[in-house]
Simulated assay, not measured.
Amino acid sequence: MSTVKRNAAAAVPIEGGRFMVIGGASLVGAATTAELLARGAAEVRLLDNFSFGSGEAIAHLRDDDRVKVVEADILKLHQLLQTMTGLDGVVHLAAFMTLSMDRDPWAGIDVNVRGVQNVLESCRVNAIRKLVFASSNAVYGYGPGVRGDLVEQTPFHSQGAPPAAILYGASKIMGEQLCRDAHRKNGQDYVILRYSTVYGERQHYRAANALYIVETHDAVQRGARPQVIGDGLETKHFVYVGDLARANCMALASDATDVAVNTSGPDPVTTLELVTMISEISGRPDLTPELVEPDPTKVRLTAGGAFRIDHAEAKNAIGWAPEVRMREGLRRLLAWRDAARAG
């Protein structure tokens, strides 16, 4: 899937278009909707079943009369068929992530596999011109095999990873293959974006790696030393939510189809570097990180060594590259959290 296929008919202009963001009441959903509106979309429908929280993430969007909030469930095909009429493109974000997969793997597999199948079937019936599917760098797995540059051809590694992480990565692989199958059988145009760990304004507590950010900020706010699991040298690769919102829109508007590309931030960081940056931005560089042993009762995502998620293919396919560096993105996120608490 590394060779970019082009099809002029696959390009869906944002201005004047009608779109649906599935899993819209989310961190990425809110940012993507705002980006679609800024680019002149005529209508954006936000579909969510609100099982992972309230509508607070999209409260700031409700006053725009181009935004329509649709409460529905992707596991109920008839609801999708009814609500996806008259659209030009769809961004599919709804999924169980690793922590929620750990709590309820059966439901997670249902949502992450059968849910994708239902979305694709509704795209077929409603003649949706293009689908953008949010996959993950979890398709490369975890453990000793995950090292060096991770590119679109890197295979899946599972040695030593917790079951929930393997199930999540495998479910994203299956979702990608369902998109390929729909293109092969029905001509459904699509672009798969393999997100690295997302962070940014409206950050929640549901992402295993992003917990490092919010829990560190919480600790610093209390005046406590932030904790780093292990020796602090473990690599993480984050991407700012605003950059992903741009990627979603650029994937829709591009003539690329039948392709999967990485969408990662500019550079990876170690957990020690990450926690240190958060303390510095929070004005407490004196709170030096405390190294602690892993808690065996908690799901923890680890890689075998230093790695970098290469995003060069995204530039080739949809013209995208990340713009926001980690320190600046953290500054924006922490400023938003401080303002939300004060408000």
Results as ranks from 00 to 15, higher is better:
residue 204 H to C: 06
residue 68 K to E: 15
residue 55 G to H: 05
residue 119 V to L: 13
residue 48 D to A: 00
residue 24 G to A: 04
residue 334 L to P: 06
residue 287 L to I: 15
residue 279 S to H: 03
residue 1 M to I: 12
residue 276 T to R: 00
residue 166 I to K: 03
residue 202 R to D: 06
residue 242 G to M: 00
residue 150 L to E: 12
residue 125 V to H: 12
residue 94 A to R: 01
residue 318 I to A: 08
residue 167 L to T: 06
residue 285 P to I: 05
residue 253 A to W: 00
residue 233 L to K: 13
residue 41 A to H: 08
residue 103 R to L: 15
residue 119 V to A: 15
residue 260 A to Q: 09
residue 89 G to W: 10
residue 205 Y to F: 14
residue 340 A to P: 08
residue 223 G to K: 03
residue 274 L to E: 02
residue 179 C to Q: 11
residue 111 V to T: 15
residue 84 M to C: 06
residue 243 D to R: 03
residue 338 D to Q: 13
residue 20 M to G: 11
residue 158 S to C: 07
residue 176 E to I: 05
residue 147 R to E: 13
residue 304 G to L: 03
residue 203 Q to V: 04
residue 145 G to E: 14
residue 41 A to R: 10
residue 157 H to I: 09
residue 243 D to K: 00
residue 149 D to Q: 07
residue 271 T to Q: 01
residue 278 I to K: 06
residue 302 T to P: 02
residue 122 S to A: 14
residue 251 A to K: 02
residue 314 A to G: 11
residue 287 L to S: 13
residue 263 T to N: 10
residue 265 G to N: 07
residue 27 L to I: 02
residue 171 S to R: 01
residue 13 P to I: 00
residue 226 P to A: 02
residue 317 A to C: 10
residue 82 Q to C: 01
residue 332 R to Y: 15
residue 337 R to Q: 15
residue 111 V to C: 11
residue 286 D to Q: 14
residue 199 Y to G: 07
residue 22 I to T: 08
residue 335 A to S: 13
residue 71 E to K: 11
residue 250 M to R: 04
residue 100 S to R: 12
